Amino acid sequence: MQSGKLKELLSRYLSNDCTAAEKAFVETWYNKYDTLNPMKLSEAEMEADVDAIQKVLSRVGGQSHRLILWSRISAAALVILSLSALLYLYFPGKQSPDYAHHTEADIKAGGDKAVLTLSDGSKISLTDIKSGEIAVQSGLKISKSEDGQIVYSSVAKSKTNQGQQAPEYNTIETPRGGKFQILLPDGSLVWLDAASSLKYPVVFAGKERKVELSGQAYFEVAKSKGKSFKVLSANQEVEVLGTHFNVNAYANQPSVITTLLEGSVNVNLKNSKNSKSGKRLKPGQQAALTGQLFQVEEVDVEQAVAWKNGYFAFERDDVRTVLNKLERWYDVEISSEGTFDDIKIGGKISRTKSLSEVLRVLQLTRKIKFKTEGRRIIAMP
């Protein structure tokens, strides 16, 4: 079958638009591999099967959905994971009863949820509020656009923040299971991931624009002549003039990760007077701050901003890192029984899928299984 026709067939299968004959064709091909017990095959046989399947899927875009275990795992485990997860992303398939998970009620993906705290301490839920004007501060109108974005726009000339008057700050916070987008007073765009917060002044006065981040955010900074833009997070300071970058600064991870997509940024230790302790990033580079040291490497920037574009992107992630991402997005608690020390996971899964669908992908690795009780989940090897 030509690759174009195969791609069309797979698309119609996922949309439940196949004829009975077409559905049988797809499922017969898939079930041949889904019902195999790979542990009974030799490594050479398993590798041959995976190579054959990958050649077919690569012609229909399958390579972008690879789920891989890295070199620290045995060759047999590598093949099992590549085989099962690759196929799942195209076909519903069947699942071994030993790795079935039980859900009382499926948990939906997160969505646009946030709370805006004004400078006077009043809180506004942005989840349910309708589009239109929310408040006026320092000559700026705060409103919610039709597409759900928070926008600051000028309504009058203001002398706020000049002279002796103290600056006013707003804070936008997303809960677990939430995300939000905001257009700052200077025209910079910010996307906030789940369980994140951004504190910023209502008016950017002086020679620098400074915000404070907890969690993860993607920034598209508006250029402002003579005014640098600084992002403070954990023990790090990022300084830019106008650029696109992502900062991942969750408290429960070992490093603060900064990824540059466009422009140039300087990363340094917060409150450090030693400029040599920091690093300057070029597009395509990522800085990881662990303790007091920065480590810079070239990366696939699409992995870093996949969350903004609606995907989970795992790249040699350990199991706890993967579970942390699921906890934040689905607002659940995931504990572990047993050890997953030797497992690394990579791949790409839509964040619009329900939790049960995502867990099912992970279970097809045959290296992890789940037991679900309401919003509490136990991961087991």
Rank of each mutant, 00 (worst) to 15 (best):
M1E: 10
Q2E: 11
Q2S: 01
L6E: 00
S11K: 06
S11V: 00
Y13L: 04
C18M: 04
C18D: 03
C18L: 01
C18K: 00
T19H: 01
E27L: 02
N31T: 04
K32G: 07
M39S: 04
E43T: 08
E45S: 10
D51Y: 02
R59D: 11
G61N: 03
I68T: 11
L78K: 15
S82I: 11
A85H: 11
Y88T: 08
F91V: 15
G93H: 15
S96H: 13
H102W: 09
T103Q: 02
A105R: 13
L116P: 14
S122K: 07
I124G: 07
L126M: 10
D128C: 06
K130Q: 10
K130N: 05
G132E: 10
G132C: 10
A135D: 05
G139A: 08
K144F: 11
D147L: 03
I150E: 08
S153P: 00
Q164I: 07
Q165E: 08
Q165Y: 02
P167R: 02
E168S: 02
Y169P: 04
R176P: 03
G177I: 06
L184C: 10
D186P: 04
G187E: 08
G187S: 05
S188D: 05
A194K: 02
A194E: 04
A194F: 02
A195W: 09
G206R: 13
V211G: 00
E212F: 14
S214Q: 15
F219C: 12
E220Y: 11
V221L: 09
V221I: 14
A222Y: 07
K223L: 01
K223F: 10
K225D: 11
K225Y: 12
K227V: 04
S228E: 12
S228R: 12
S228P: 08
A234W: 03
L241C: 08
L241V: 06
G242D: 04
V247Y: 01
A249L: 07
P254C: 05
T259L: 08
L269R: 12
S272K: 09
S277H: 14
G278E: 12
A288E: 13
L293V: 10
V296Q: 00
V299Q: 03
D300Y: 05
D300T: 07
F314Q: 07
D318Y: 07
V319M: 15
N324Q: 14
D331N: 14
V332I: 00
S335M: 05
S336R: 14
G338S: 14
K344T: 04
K344S: 02
V358W: 05
L362V: 11
T365D: 01
T365K: 01
K367F: 05
K369H: 12
K369W: 03
P381F: 06
